[in-house]
Design a protein around this nucleic acid. Structure first.
Lengths: 142, 142
DNA sequence: CTTTGTGCAAACGATTTGCAGGATG
DNA sequence: CATCCTGCAAATCGTTTGCACAAAG
């Protein structure tokens, strides 16, 4: 899970036809560096922690551009908030029901699901599994 | 898939300690009678189609009461809207990417997923699978 | 220099809340 | 008749939009 270099990120953005702006770069680099699927609010706080980097509206616009380009995806696990994820390859999610934390589950950590018995007429393109439970922090009685 | 009788619904509501009001009854009965996981907006229109039955605020409040009682559950498949489902037993969902329609997938229609290789420390309580694809209506070139 | 992005503030849509009157058990 | 529910309207919260200015290629 090594983080891409600055140059690699710039190259990726350009390859998708996106202009490289400090704000867009910051949003994407931040998402690449974390695995907790932050909300816009969390991105806003994190990015502007030390100095102003991006406004909220620009974060929304950057997220939309990155999502359209296929570099990030939206994750829906709680009502009312979208979360964002720079890992676009198929994978599953673990959602702690105590603290709400989210953790990726690698594609290989769960068996591949076969669609043999799916209703005739439905054409499956992709799937993902959401596992709900209790993370180790919360089991410890946090 | 027979629908519960009026009496059965009243009994269920009372058994959960919920007062039986016309509005609450209507919301629950409507959800039991359909399998398309309506939004609040859709419930509002459907319930008040022929005569006024419930206000929007009351639908929200009924849904919250029913959900707290464990009689219905929230389904999140698209950003920005909650959908509701009276089928609380574990099951999966098929989400058509063309028309947005949602269809239940019975628990038995997909293999049971084993958690052997899940990270040590995570305690799984439940899971569900979301399948994205194309429904028959949309394949026909709707 | 042309095109696209940024920031601000206003607009928007879904959901929540406060409260006075009304229905339930 | 005490408690809880309903309906209305205002409030709230996440997200989108319009527009003038600034930056990217």
């Amino acid at each position: 899970m090594s983080q891409p270099s600055t140059d690699a990120i710039v190259t990726t953005l350009k390859a998708k036809g996106l202009r490289v702006t400090p704000q867009r770069f910051a949003v994407y680099a931040n998402l690449l560096a974390r695995t907790d699927h932050p909300t816009v609010e969390q991105l806003l706080v994190d990015l502007n922690q030390y100095c102003p980097v991006s406004s909220q509206a620009t974060i929304y616009s950057s997220l939309q551009a990155l999502r359209t380009a296929g570099l990030i995806r939206e994750v829906l696990l709680e009502a009312g908030v979208s979360r964002y994820d720079a890992k676009v390859e198929p994978h599953h999610h673990f959602h702690c029901q105590e603290c709400g934390s989210i953790e990726d589950i690698g594609w290989d950590a769960l068996p591949v699901v076969e669609f043999d018995r799916l209703r005739v007429g439905l054409q499956a393109h992709a799937y993902e599994i959401t596992v709900r439970g209790c993370c180790d922090r919360c089991q410890a009685g946090n």
